[in-house]
């Protein structure tokens, strides 16, 4: 029994930043990088299944990213996952969710997991593409924004809930193996223990190139291209000015309008 969890290293932008000279991204000095918030939940879900099976399941963390992304991979490994795979090639520098999914599909063929998890979306670009595109390449059953999962290691079906708009949830059963994208709040993600963090440094990580996976650069072309990136006109809060009495009067108006009072 094997669960594959695809994770991403996301970038958090400073409040003040400058767009790169080519106008297509932000200068790299203005980023802080970390494991995607949603991935804490998908890794936890895999760990819960492993633990419920008495440890008789392997959790493999996979990531597409350069050396920098190793930190995010190790963060996930520190929570108790068994091993990692990192794929990188300069041809992936402008990869989108579709291109990453193409790489992940090759990894699924190699690893033959019984279940694949991704985060419901990434905290930086929020495309919500990778997981379900992976299912598309594989032709696997799939469900997005999973907020509850009842799945025993190796079972042929799982029962899950999808979180819909307005807090409503749909209950559905799904055939396995499947690709599920995991929503925030599905569980309480653990924090890695100091021992786990130390051990994660020793855990095996396969570093693979596109060649290793038999993929050409043309096969990982993205489904869109960035023309330009820019700061929005209204990037900051609309300031309510005036005396405290005026500010409160305006705030009361906003509250009443938004609450339909």
């Amino acid at each position: 029994m094997k669960i594959m969890v695809a994770v991403k290293q996301v970038a958090f932008l400073d409040d003040e930043f400058e767009i790169r000279d080519d106008g297509r991204d932000v200068g790299e000095d203005f980023f802080e990088k970390d494991l995607n918030e949603f991935d804490h939940f998908s890794v936890e879900q895999a760990m819960l299944i492993k633990e419920a099976a008495g440890g008789d399941a392997e959790v493999v963390i996979v990531i597409v990213g350069d050396e920098d992304a190793d930190d995010a991979l190790r963060t996930a490994l520190a929570k108790g996952a068994d091993r990692g795979i990192r794929v990188w090639d300069d041809a992936l520098a402008e990869a989108d969710g579709i291109a990453v999914a193409k790489v992940l599909a090759k990894l699924v063929e190699r690893e033959k997991p019984d279940m694949v998890f991704t985060g419901a979306q990434s905290a930086d670009f929020g495309s919500a593409v990778t997981g379900m595109a992976l299912a598309g390449f594989l032709g696997w059953p799939h469900a997005a924004v999973v907020s509850n999962l009842d799945y025993a290691s190796g079972a042929r079906t799982a029962t899950l809930r999808r979180e819909l708009e307005g807090g409503l949830e749909e209950i559905m059963t799904i055939r396995c193996p499947a690709v599920l994208s995991i929503q925030l709040g599905i569980n309480q993600p653990r924090y890695a223990s100091l021992r786990g963090i130390k051990q994660a440094k020793q855990k095996p990580v396969d570093e693979l190139s596109l060649d290793d996976l038999g993929l050409s650069a043309a096969e990982v072309a993205p489904a869109s291209r960035v023309r330009r990136m820019y700061a929005p006109e209204r990037g900051k809060a609309e300031l309510i000015t005036g005396s405290a009495a005026e500010q409160a009067a305006r705030l009361a108006e906003i509250i009443k309008e938004l609450r339909g009072m």
């Binding site: 932008l13 932000v26 990136m229 820019y230």
Partner: peptide, 13 residues
């Protein structure tokens, strides 16, 4: 939008 809504991105195909 990109980078948690801090930038806008124009994309083409």
């Amino acid at each position: 939008a990109g980078y948690a809504e801090k930038v806008l991105v124009d994309v083409d195909f």
